[in-house]
Computed example of a mutant assay.
Amino acid sequence: MNIDLNDLDLNSIGTWPLPAKIIAIVFLSIIIIFLGYWTDTKKQLAVLDAADAEELKLRQTFENKQSKAANLEAYKEQMATMKASFGALLRQLPEKTEVPGLIEDISHQGLATGLEFRTIRLLPEKEIDFYVELPIEISVVGNFHQFGEFVSNIAALPRIVTLHDFSIRPITPEASGDNLVMNITARTYRYTAGEKESETKNETK
C-alpha cells in the first residue's frame, strides 16, 4: 500500500491508514527515547562515571594507607636505629669545652710515639651547614715509623678526627731518615644545630 504524505493531516491522525500510524508511533518513540537519553540518562551516566572515578581514587588512597600501616612498625624500628646511630656519631663530636682536651690528646699521642712537636695550634673554624669544622695545624719531627704510629693513634681516638694535606720532607738537606718533618692538618667537627636550638630557647625565656 502506497502512502502519500501529502494526504496525511496532522489534525486527524485517527483517520490515517494503519501503516502510517505504525510509522508515526515508531518515529515518535525514537524521538522520545533520544530526548530521554539526552536529558536524563546522559546525566546519570556522567554521575556514574564520576562515582567510579571517586571509588577508584578512594580505593588507591585506602591501599596506600593500608600499605603504610602494614610497614609502620618496620618504619619505626628503622627510625629508632637511625636515631641511635646518629646519636652515637654526635657523641663522637667534641663540644666547645672539649676542644682543648682534644688538642692535648693529640699532643700526648705524638709524644708517646717519640715525635717532637714543632707546631700544634687551632686554626679558625669553618661553619658548614649544620656543623663546624675545626682544623688543627700540626708539624712534628721524627721518622716514618713514628709518623705511621702517630696517625694510627689519632684514628683510634674516641672523637672523630680526620687527617688531611700532609707532607713529609727532611729537616735539612743533609738529614737522615730519622730526621724528617711531617706537616699535617687534623680536622675535627662540632654539631651546631643543637647549639642553635639552645640559643633560641634561651632568647625566648
Rank of each mutant, 00 (worst) to 15 (best):
P158A: 02
T119Q: 14
V161K: 01
E95F: 01
P100L: 02
A112F: 03
S167H: 10
P124M: 01
V99I: 15
S107Q: 13
H145S: 14
S152C: 04
L102P: 15
I160F: 11
A80I: 04
L122E: 15
T119M: 05
P124R: 01
Q92N: 05
L122Y: 07
F147W: 08
L122F: 09
N143C: 06
L72Y: 13
A156C: 02
I160Y: 09
Q146M: 06
F144S: 14
D165I: 00
P94C: 00
V161D: 07
V140R: 05
R91K: 08
E127W: 03
N71P: 08
P135L: 00
F166W: 10
M79C: 07
P124F: 01
P100K: 00
Y75F: 10
A112D: 15
D129T: 09
L115R: 03
S167Y: 06
Y75I: 07
P158H: 00
L102A: 04
S107K: 11
E125W: 08
A112E: 15
I120C: 07
K96C: 02
H108A: 10
I106N: 08
L111C: 03
P158C: 00
F166A: 13
F150H: 12
S107F: 09
P94K: 00
L123N: 14
F150K: 07
Q146E: 15
F130M: 08
R121S: 14
S85K: 02
S152T: 14
L157D: 09
K76S: 08
N153I: 05
E116F: 07
T97A: 10
A155Y: 12
F147V: 04
F117W: 12
A84M: 05
L93K: 02
A69C: 05
P94H: 00
Y131R: 09
I136P: 15
A80G: 07
R159D: 07
F150M: 08
L115P: 11
E133K: 08
V132R: 15
T113S: 13
Q146F: 04
A112R: 08
E127M: 06
D165W: 03
S139C: 06
K126H: 11
V99A: 01
E95T: 10
G142R: 00
D165T: 04
Q92L: 01
E77H: 12
H108N: 13
P135S: 02
E133V: 12
V141M: 12
L90C: 00
P124G: 00
F86N: 11
K83C: 01
E77F: 02
F150P: 15
E127A: 06
V151F: 15
D129W: 10
L134G: 04
I160M: 13
E116D: 13
F147D: 11
G114S: 10
T119A: 04
R91G: 03
